[in-house]
Design a protein around this nucleic acid. Structure first.
Lengths: 179, 179
DNA sequence: CTATCCATGTAAAGGGTTACATGATTAA
DNA sequence: TTAATCATGTAACCCTTTACATGGATAG
């Protein structure tokens, strides 16, 4: 049930409404870590309120509700962050394609791997540019923007996929039958 | 709906039963790419049969049914492999923790990052040993074992996480406030 | 004969996506 | 006044997990 923990983690940076949290999932966290839409977020915030992990400050225009972490919520977040299971939930279409590349004809496999390498090179450059811009704005002593550390991982991740695709292309080019 | 494509990809290597496919998900594909249990696999194979993507050779002990890819199934697999969307489905608890590390107290963040680095170093070594054993058994000209290419990515992936955790620890050690 | 593995299925409960539905506030 | 944005919610449908349920084949 990681949506709950994603919400706890976002609220650890300060109070937010369901609408704010929905916007947050449109950024990097939704693209790289965990997806969620408002229709799932609102009911989950309701359950978390019942469970005493968050409280509502009912005060805002248009019926806006602002949620704040409770001590129990912060404790639960810390527990989840530090005690991770050996087998974490993983669902990744890109890695699935990596497993299944050996089910394609050599020409198709080559096309897939070349496409992946190009895509990752482009995404890596784009993310590098965003992170460089963040760093340029950043004054020493200020807190890092949310997701700055994870962004650095994103760059390394794209480089890993790109390097892997090139390594795989070399194995294909060497005439090694991959299936 | 990637379970369908995972099954198509596994069946591309040869006919298999629901039981065989369930076993396949207990290996690397289930650990790194996509999880599925038999209670989801059997109904999905039924729907895929209705859709004409697979056919059943009803012949085996204990009511065993063996599924084989049809031409339509192979076409659908190829389509899905080569035409990937920009925004792929991602659900990854480890990356979620990376995003939320900035919501922890510095001591907790350090403990998390050190734990991740150690865990990845261990997993990397274990996977490297399995891949080396695969390569030792492998005769040039034989097809690569299923998942050999993806396994190489696994190694690079663990190295990327480990390198990232160490980079993040250095930023923490430098006294930079991460939140 | 007995335990283990092979083999298939269904049911219930919960998580997640898409669509439906409504209305207040603000900026142009 | 009108369009965009803020803001919340529910309903239907599908996917996923866990548990329930059954029985054949094989090895010791």
């Amino acid at each position: 049930m990681s949506l709950r923990h994603a919400l706890l983690g976002l609220l650890a940076h300060g109070p937010a409404s369901g609408y704010d949290l929905t916007r947050a999932f449109e950024g990097g966290i939704g693209q790289y870590a965990w997806q969620a839409g408002h229709s799932r977020i609102y009911p989950e915030l309701g359950k978390m309120t019942e469970a005493g992990l968050v409280v509502v400050d009912e005060a805002g225009p248009r019926g806006r509700k602002t949620y704040t972490l409770t001590d129990d919520g912060r404790t639960e977040l810390r527990r989840w962050m530090l005690h991770w299971p050996e087998q974490a939930t993983v669902r990744n279409e890109t890695v699935l394609r990596m497993f299944l590349v050996q089910s394609l004809e050599p020409d198709d496999a080559r096309a897939l791997l070349e496409g992946m390498a190009e895509h990752c090179a482009r995404e890596r450059d784009a993310l590098r540019a965003v992170m460089d811009a963040d760093d340029a704005e950043h004054r020493p002593g200020d807190p890092l923007p949310f997701g700055r550390l994870a962004g650095e991982y994103g760059i390394r991740q794209y480089e890993a996929v790109q390097g892997w695709a090139q390594w795989s292309l070399e194995r294909l080019a060497a005439g090694e039958p991959v299936r």
